Simulated scan of single mutants.
Amino acid sequence: MIVTDKNKISWVWLLFHFRSSSFMVTWPRILTVTVTSMFVTYLELYYSIQEYTLTTTPFLLLGVIMGIFLAFRTNASYDRYWEGRKLWGALVNTSRSLTRQTCFMLNSVHDIMELQHLRQAFVKRVIAFVHALRCHLRNENCVEEIKKFLSPEDLSMVLQSIHRPLAILHQLGRDLAFARNRRWLNEFSYPFMDAQLNELSNILGSCERIKNTPIPFSYSVLIQRIVASYCLLLPFGLVETIGLLTPLVVLMISYAFFELDAIGNEIEDPFGLHPNDLPLTAISRNIEINLLELMNEHNRPEALKPKDDILL
């Protein structure tokens, strides 16, 4: 995610800021269309090849249709982006609630040391789940992230599993069952903590739904073809009307259409590593810091800070 101080940004800076923007992806397309329009303008003005020119009417009609398609595509992509952010916000809240319940609902007059060990192991397992979920969504290896929060035996079981976040979630359920069997967690409190585990499972499944169900490929292909055809043919409809200014107008129109298409492509998967994707690493680190603080752990990492205005 691009993080900037809006109070220190001028509109001039925004106009000429291209780093980490979708322009770095679309500029070859924009350049191709602009050069094509320059070539068409040259042929029309110096050779008067009028039989190959068009009127602006078909482009007006197609422009309206294409605007609707692009707006739908961008809105659909942003809905996925915002839903992903809400899910990770729910993950933050659920992790905190589960840790709070671990501190106050698990009680025992005897076995105080053993109970405290279970509390710490349980909370660290929640942290491991958060990191494993992030790596799962980004197709990364989570070994280095989770090994410091799990015992060697539990780590070995997780690494042998095909679905590592689900394996950790299963171990959390096992811990709750163990605490209930030892009478550290009474029958009235158990459903509340189990409901939090169900919420973690729902968050996991919802994130997987977003990641594994992209916008239909045929729709993306259609948008790409319509935008490319429109921008390439646009100079044939403008050259008789605006003459030498045709390349400039084509440049501005193609920039708008190609950028909207690129933005939709980039935020379609909000869990990636692009500059405009969700900062899952930073959110995971904040959860880790919060939970360790609730457990009075002094060895806590520092919160991640933006690097070159980008927070991953």
Rank of each mutant, 00 (worst) to 15 (best):
R125G: 01
M24L: 15
R209N: 04
S254N: 13
I30M: 03
P306L: 11
F69S: 07
Y190L: 01
L159G: 04
N212Q: 15
V221R: 15
G272P: 07
Y46S: 11
L304I: 12
V25T: 06
I253Q: 07
I9P: 02
I112P: 00
Q224P: 04
I9A: 08
T56N: 13
L251K: 12
R134S: 07
K147D: 07
K211D: 03
G264D: 04
W82Y: 12
V123Q: 04
E114I: 11
F59E: 05
R19N: 13
I112L: 07
T94Y: 00
L204Q: 01
H163P: 04
L115F: 04
H274E: 15
A76I: 07
D269S: 13
L204K: 01
E302P: 04
I2A: 02
L155C: 11
H274R: 15
N139L: 09
L291P: 04
F69L: 14
N141S: 10
T57R: 15
H163D: 07
R174D: 10
E83G: 03
D308L: 06
Q171I: 09
M38D: 06
R73H: 12
N276S: 15
Y255P: 03
V3Y: 10
K147V: 08
F18T: 13
L291W: 09
N299E: 13
N286E: 14
P214T: 08
D308I: 07
Y78S: 08
T74L: 08
T57L: 15
R164E: 10
I112W: 02
F39D: 09
V126H: 01
I146A: 06
L60F: 13
I289M: 01
K8F: 01
L312M: 10
P191T: 00
L45S: 08
P275Q: 13
N296A: 11
Q224E: 14
I168R: 01
R100P: 03
N296Q: 10
E259P: 03
P165H: 02
M38H: 05
I68G: 07
N296C: 09
D309S: 14
L278T: 09
A303E: 10
L273N: 11
M295E: 03
N75M: 05
Q196A: 05
S189K: 01
W184L: 07
Q196I: 00
R119E: 11
I310V: 15
I65L: 15
F122A: 01
F129W: 06
D194Q: 15
R85T: 08
T57Q: 14
Y47P: 09
